Computed example of a mutant assay.
Amino acid sequence: MFKMLIFAVSLSLAGTLLKDLNVPGGGFHVVGGSSIGKSTINHVAVSVWGDRSRFKTWRSTGNALEQIALIHNDNTLILDEIGEANKYEMDNIVYMLANGTGKERSNKGFENRETKTWRLLFLSNGEIDLRSIMQSIGKSPKDGQTLQIANIPADTGKFGVFENLHEFPSGSELADHLKDKAEYHHGSLGMAFIEKYIENHSRNKERAKFFFDEFKNRIQAENDSQVSRVLSRFALVAAAGELASEFGLVSWEPEDAIKAIAECFNSWLEDRGSGNTETEEALNQVKSFIERNEDSRFEALQTGSQPLSSQPVFNTVIRDKAGFKHYENRQDVYYIYPETFKNEVCKGICYKTALSELREKGFLKHDADRFDCKLPSNSTKKRPRMYAILGELLGESDD
């Protein structure tokens, strides 16, 4: 079974079912190393509706992609090579495509123009993903952004994107064969699918809903609202693939699409990791700040003339101080000024989300019903309220 190829064809058809199954738009991103056949997936997907001229590129402005999205309303947009995108616009563009709403604009008379809207799925590929692009320019990707475009690792561990070669001597030759065939045979499957679907619209809508629900019922996914949103998108693709099989338009057997898309979903879930990645990202950001700055921006808290820290302290000048480091209960505790925590440590994320997660995980020293606590008694006699992060977050412990 060609898992990724079934996924590509089913996804290309699935955009036409968005309205009937009431599923929000969104994207998929096939990610992996070079020369493993990622672009072949896009070639196969685009051939469902036409030739390679239907390929669009990430190397476009947000305004240009608005118009492209509008043209692909209730269909699937194929975008090639995410690495060519304007990395400074990527997060906004992904939100725009998935949410189906363009920018609000006014005319010369300062009257609001009608905002462009659409509903679509999109498929992308590349050696890097949205998270990596944003991190490369110092942005912190939010979970809502990365959920809009679900990563699917391209490498099956066998022959790149292929599980078997079907008598071809190499993966590259199989990829070339598929690309050649996609150039020669294209544009018929999509129209045939639409014709079959509308022949008996009421029944086929019910069948699509059946396959959609069947897929979701078979997936043993965690009860998480974020996972559920992406699961519905995969279920839509599975429904389109099963309908295509039921219509006799493709060569795969019944349930092959459900099985193939389930594998893709599980690959996404494994790549994403467990739990709420937005809170995980918050913990990682706090941890990273302390690790980068603990020797240069944290002053060892002293009582009298004795430092209370696990590390010897030298009389270095602390510039741009973020807070204090104090050794207590067999670990360092990092006391951070509230404004520094909000504006620097949690730049780009919600600081309250970070504090809530730190407290829930036991990494925050705090007073009852608060996130902060007073600085311990020290030689300056000043005891401001600060956020106190336990060194256990960094793996520190004398146990």
Results as ranks from 00 to 15, higher is better:
4 M>H: 13
7 F>M: 04
8 A>S: 08
11 L>D: 04
15 G>M: 09
17 L>T: 12
19 K>T: 13
21 L>S: 09
23 V>Y: 09
30 V>F: 08
31 V>D: 00
33 G>R: 10
34 S>P: 03
36 I>N: 01
36 I>A: 02
43 H>L: 01
45 A>I: 09
46 V>S: 13
47 S>V: 06
47 S>C: 04
54 R>C: 04
58 W>N: 05
58 W>H: 11
70 L>V: 12
74 D>K: 14
75 N>H: 11
75 N>T: 15
79 L>A: 14
79 L>G: 13
80 D>Y: 12
85 A>L: 09
88 Y>P: 00
89 E>K: 04
92 N>C: 04
93 I>M: 13
98 A>F: 14
99 N>G: 15
111 E>N: 10
113 R>Y: 06
114 E>L: 12
115 T>W: 03
118 W>Q: 03
122 F>P: 08
122 F>H: 12
126 G>K: 08
135 Q>A: 11
140 S>F: 14
145 Q>K: 06
150 A>Q: 11
154 A>S: 11
155 D>W: 08
158 K>I: 13
164 N>H: 14
168 F>R: 00
170 S>I: 01
176 D>G: 00
179 K>P: 01
182 A>F: 05
185 H>T: 08
188 S>E: 15
193 F>I: 14
205 K>C: 09
214 E>D: 12
218 R>P: 00
219 I>T: 07
220 Q>N: 15
221 A>E: 12
223 N>E: 15
225 S>Y: 09
225 S>M: 10
231 L>S: 04
235 A>H: 07
248 G>R: 12
254 P>Y: 02
255 E>N: 11
261 I>G: 02
265 F>Y: 15
267 S>L: 12
269 L>Y: 11
271 D>R: 07
274 S>A: 10
276 N>P: 02
278 E>V: 01
279 T>R: 15
291 E>M: 11
295 D>P: 00
297 R>F: 02
299 E>D: 01
300 A>H: 02
303 T>N: 02
304 G>Q: 00
306 Q>H: 10
308 L>F: 07
313 V>H: 05
315 N>I: 01
316 T>Q: 13
318 I>M: 03
320 D>Q: 05
327 Y>M: 01
329 N>I: 00
342 K>C: 03
343 N>Q: 10
344 E>Y: 05
345 V>N: 02
346 C>E: 07
346 C>V: 08
349 I>L: 15
351 Y>M: 10
352 K>Y: 12
352 K>T: 13
364 L>E: 05
365 K>R: 10
365 K>Q: 08
366 H>A: 14
372 D>K: 02
373 C>K: 06
375 L>A: 01
377 S>V: 02
379 S>P: 00
381 K>M: 10
382 K>E: 14
384 P>E: 03
386 M>K: 05
388 A>L: 03
393 L>H: 07
393 L>Y: 06
399 D>Y: 08
